[in-house]
Amino acid sequence: MTGHRTARLSAFLALPAALTLAAAAPALAHEGHGGHQEAAAAKGSQAYQIDLEQLNDSGASGTAMLSLDGTKLTVKIEASGLVPGQPHAQHIHGSTDGHDFHCPDASADKNGDGITTTAEGLPAYGDINISLTTKGDTSKDSGLAVDRMPAADKDGKVSYERTLTVSQDVVDHIKDLHVVQHGIDPNGNDKYDFGKGKSELDPKLPQEATAPADCGMVKGAAVGSMPSGGVETGSGGTQGIESPGLLAGGGAALLAAAGLLAVNRRNHQRTAEARTDRH
């Protein structure tokens, strides 16, 4: 009798342990699958893609990537359709105090001359937060430092990369910011001239040199975050599990516990039959 109780107790204790292992297996497998991303997220690493779309019918477009590691911001920009051989001022615009700024549309052209100037665009995309210079200062003060801005090659392409140290406010509000590149060529002569007048920012510069050429806003989730919708449930499969051995181990433990229960039932039946024979 004592042996029967002991066996039954062992089976009872084995089952919750097996269930726990089986339940933990997908979580452990998921952790293995996204371990590097989760580790990166834990360290504060984030990455965002920005699609740059033309303004002022410039024909410019491109992609910017903003990658944060703590307060280190790496900016990579690949753009085309810009004015060949000319410097293109570029900035991260927007607010880090909760204001909602965005890329302007054609309605920003208040005087109807066909050009949305920097001054006309500012109410939409906000003031300069970071000047994306090739070297030196990156504050608002360098917003028109055309000698330290990237120049487009002969095909109108700009390839830019720089790592900067930014404030915690920028880190906390990175999704509220956006990238703007400046410099247009409305008369198609492959240079900046005063055909559209002087820049309202600096009368020594032509309007063409400072008018926005393209703009893009941060989009997408941070690298390492949970995909939209969370973990898929209810499929009953193991797709996406990097370590199926863990799941198999949990299943084996469940089978072992079930087998132990079956043996105990058979032992119980045999004991009952023996008692019946004795009587």
Score class of each variant (00 low, 15 high):
residue 145 A to F: 11
residue 150 P to M: 07
residue 142 S to A: 15
residue 154 K to C: 00
residue 169 D to V: 04
residue 152 A to L: 07
residue 145 A to W: 10
residue 144 L to D: 04
residue 152 A to G: 13
residue 146 V to H: 11
residue 163 T to A: 04
residue 147 D to K: 15
residue 183 G to P: 10
residue 163 T to Q: 08
residue 163 T to F: 02
residue 163 T to E: 10
residue 164 L to N: 00
residue 181 Q to T: 13
residue 158 V to Y: 01
residue 143 G to T: 13
residue 145 A to Q: 12
residue 173 H to P: 11
residue 157 K to L: 04
residue 183 G to W: 09
residue 161 E to S: 14
residue 151 A to W: 09
residue 186 P to Q: 08
residue 163 T to P: 04
residue 179 V to C: 05
residue 159 S to W: 04
residue 157 K to R: 14
residue 157 K to W: 04
residue 172 D to V: 12
residue 159 S to P: 04
residue 177 L to V: 06
residue 143 G to W: 12
residue 148 R to N: 12
residue 182 H to E: 09
residue 143 G to C: 07
residue 185 D to A: 07
residue 170 V to S: 01
residue 170 V to I: 11
residue 171 V to F: 09
residue 177 L to Q: 06
residue 166 V to G: 03
residue 177 L to C: 03
residue 155 D to G: 11
residue 181 Q to W: 00
residue 166 V to Q: 09
residue 167 S to N: 01
residue 189 N to P: 06
residue 144 L to P: 06
residue 189 N to E: 06
residue 158 V to K: 01
residue 164 L to G: 01
residue 178 H to F: 03
residue 154 K to A: 14
residue 186 P to C: 09
residue 175 K to H: 08
residue 159 S to R: 14
residue 161 E to K: 13
residue 151 A to N: 15
residue 178 H to D: 03
residue 168 Q to A: 14
residue 189 N to M: 09
residue 167 S to V: 05
residue 180 V to Y: 04
residue 166 V to C: 06
residue 170 V to K: 03
residue 142 S to N: 14
residue 181 Q to A: 13
residue 156 G to Y: 03
residue 177 L to R: 04
residue 154 K to F: 00
residue 180 V to K: 00
residue 178 H to A: 03
residue 183 G to H: 10
residue 172 D to A: 15
residue 164 L to E: 00
residue 161 E to T: 15
residue 148 R to W: 01
residue 173 H to A: 15
residue 152 A to M: 12
residue 155 D to I: 05
residue 160 Y to A: 09
residue 143 G to S: 14
residue 162 R to M: 02
residue 175 K to L: 04
residue 152 A to I: 10
residue 169 D to Y: 09
residue 187 N to G: 11
residue 152 A to F: 07
residue 184 I to N: 02
residue 145 A to G: 11
residue 174 I to L: 14
residue 153 D to N: 15
residue 189 N to I: 06
residue 153 D to M: 13
residue 185 D to W: 08
residue 170 V to D: 09
residue 157 K to S: 05
residue 175 K to C: 02
residue 187 N to A: 10
residue 189 N to L: 05
residue 169 D to T: 12
residue 155 D to A: 12
residue 162 R to V: 02
residue 182 H to V: 01
residue 155 D to C: 03
residue 167 S to D: 03
residue 161 E to A: 12
residue 160 Y to N: 06
residue 170 V to E: 06
residue 149 M to R: 00
residue 181 Q to V: 14
residue 184 I to T: 13
residue 145 A to Y: 13
residue 158 V to G: 03
residue 184 I to R: 04
residue 143 G to F: 15
residue 147 D to P: 05
residue 178 H to L: 11
residue 166 V to H: 07
residue 164 L to Y: 03
residue 152 A to P: 12
residue 164 L to A: 01
residue 175 K to T: 15
residue 168 Q to I: 07
residue 174 I to P: 10
residue 158 V to N: 05
residue 146 V to G: 07
